[in-house]
Design a protein around this nucleic acid. Structure first.
Lengths: 335, 335
DNA sequence: GTATAATATGAATACGTATTAATTAAAAGA
DNA sequence: TCTTTTAATTAATACGTATTCATATTATAC
């Protein structure tokens, strides 16, 4: 009784064709919305399909049409709420024109080759990389076989891709201005991993401080984690003449910093020290933290990504290159 | 110059075969690890593949072998950190035997038919549903075509599926015991959506309270949201004789409740009121909240799911039915 | 009504791999 | 050495759809 193949093989377009009294080609045309099929014929086919419970085999379709309708999305940290939201909303947008999301996690550089292989094997229609780690290898491999790539909050020069980013540099400058306008006098910065985004946030901040005459700023850098943020805040305050205004590269770090100020250093916020975060994740708005932060226009950014693939789908050739989105400040109780 | 099909068509097994001086069948065998191919031949093929940059076309493979190596994962709320972690870890586990994750969001009942259609069209090898909303329609459709289903934290009777759940009822009882053992006297419960999980947490809690002689408990139910939790907490305290011990159906609600107590009601935690949450998401451990909560054995649960698919992969027939995992209490500063 | 154009359908084939059945090569037995 | 067995390989075909090209049908013009 060898039954390697499942008995319940799916209904095929051929069976539908037989039942509807048309050819397989016509059934295919109906399900690809080919306008050249007559309304009456279409109805016959749809009815037969309905009765038989036919669902087109997307795998066969992909093979034949050379289009998988799959977009691979690579995240380095699903735990980061900002990217969680990006992921959720992107999925939603892509579904509107029938693209599905194949999910990959890039925990370390080691994952790169795994991801490359899967992405190529599944012949995905596109690839979105929202990861601070260097994906140059991935990018090059994919471009080699014409898989369109979108980088999210990551810039790469000399690479023929779309890069959708928020304006981190300008956001950093905005914070410097805010602190100075509110008469803060001593400054600190707690960065995340040494990535483009964290680096740019720092650069804008420090540059603007310098432009307005402040050359001293205590800088600590580590990772986008609560514990790390908390540790860095404590370390900063072991120095003499500690800051009264600290910019953290994201909200998670900021929460660590807030708790360090509150529970370890017994400081009043914002009287003794002001803290600003980045991302405006929902927790930042909850009253126990109520962190002043920077909001990236997540929806617009995601829609830009989605729209890029939509244009490709329509056989247009949307522009590549860098697309920069301005951020906005959200004032709460830590300043 | 009509070039409908991309010029850069992928390298196929046929080209590899030609280059290696073997048949296409042999190339296929090499890439499916068929033991019947000689070591020397294998090397020849691998080398040719390497030189040409050949990557097997998974879509063609799926079509031919009737196995897509795709597992669909349906979440109702990616924003919920517990499920975010489940999602991340599940992806990681499945990748270990080469299963990829196709992601779906079930925001409302309306999404059901969309999901069903995609799941069937892609001929996924399995389906994981981690959603409190009723997926009976999905389940029935899938079982009809033999797609294995795993329910995560959701029980369904009379359905031939694997259901991996934490023991919510027992956890509820545990909390009742804890409150009573610590001499709390008046009780409250804030639930999430009226789902199995929330309902069971409540049931265990109330039943155990009753068993130990407490018949009064103020119950509010709404949704798993910060704002809702906060509103409910306030409402509870508008009643006369409000509770001094409140169990919230998850940590997000608990945070709303904590902030209501702190900022709206000006109460001391835990002196005036104790609060317990559920899930032990990372924020609960951060000091500004430091919420006492219930930890589900997330990893074990996910591994159970992953293992189920692994067994199927090996053509074994793993047992279906309900698999229950005990929870554990994490004591922090809200009790 | 016929001739012509436009439209709708069908037959045949491609897509790239897995797999069965058939064949050849290697190993073992005498 | 020559069978007999076993292992390795190939040829041929299936998987289910999309699509090109040819054909049949309908609509339009006269």
């Amino acid at each position: 009784m060898s039954r390697k193949r499942s008995k319940t093989k799916g209904i095929t377009s051929i069976e539908v064709a037989k039942k509807a009294g048309v050819s397989q080609a016509t059934v295919s045309r109906v399900f690809t919305n080919d306008p050249s099929v007559r309304e009456k014929t279409k109805e016959k086919v749809m009815e037969a399909a309905e009765v038989l419970g036919y669902k087109p085999n997307q795998l066969a379709s992909s093979l034949s049409s050379n289009k998988s309708n799959i977009i691979a999305v690579v995240l380095s940290d699903v735990t980061n709420r900002f990217y969680t939201k990006v992921f959720a909303y992107l999925t939603q947008c892509l579904q509107q024109f029938n693209k599905q999301v194949l999910f990959f996690q890039m925990r370390s550089e080691q994952d790169i080759s795994y991801i490359i292989n899967r992405v190529m094997e599944y012949r995905v229609d596109g690839l979105v990389i929202a990861s601070p780690a260097l994906p140059n290898e991935i990018a090059e491999e994919c471009l080699k076989v014409n898989i369109p790539i979108v980088l999210f909050n990551r810039k790469v020069k000399d690479l023929d891709v779309l890069s959708v980013c928020s304006d981190s540099v300008e956001a950093g400058r905005m914070i410097a201005n805010y602190f100075l306008d509110h008469h803060y006098t001593r400054f600190g910065f707690i960065g995340g991993r040494t990535t483009t985004t964290s680096g740019e946030r720092k650069k804008g901040y420090l540059d603007r401080l310098a432009e307005r005459g402040v050359t001293e700023c205590i800088v600590e850098e580590g990772d986008y984690l609560y514990d790390v943020g908390r540790a860095h805040m404590n370390r900063i305050f072991q120095r003499e003449n500690p800051p009264n205004a600290v910019f953290c590269a994201n909200d998670i770090i900021a929460m660590g910093a807030v708790d360090a100020a509150r529970f370890d250093l017994k400081l009043q916020i914002p009287k003794d020290v002001a803290i600003i975060g980045f991302d405006d994740i929902d927790i930042s708005g909850w009253e126990s933290y109520a962190i002043t932060t920077i909001r990236q226009p997540m929806k617009e950014m995601v829609e830009e990504v989605s729209n890029y693939f939509y244009e490709l789908e329509q056989n247009n050739t949307p522009q590549k290159g860098l697309r920069l989105f301005p951020c906005e400040m959200v004032e709460r109780k830590t300043t």
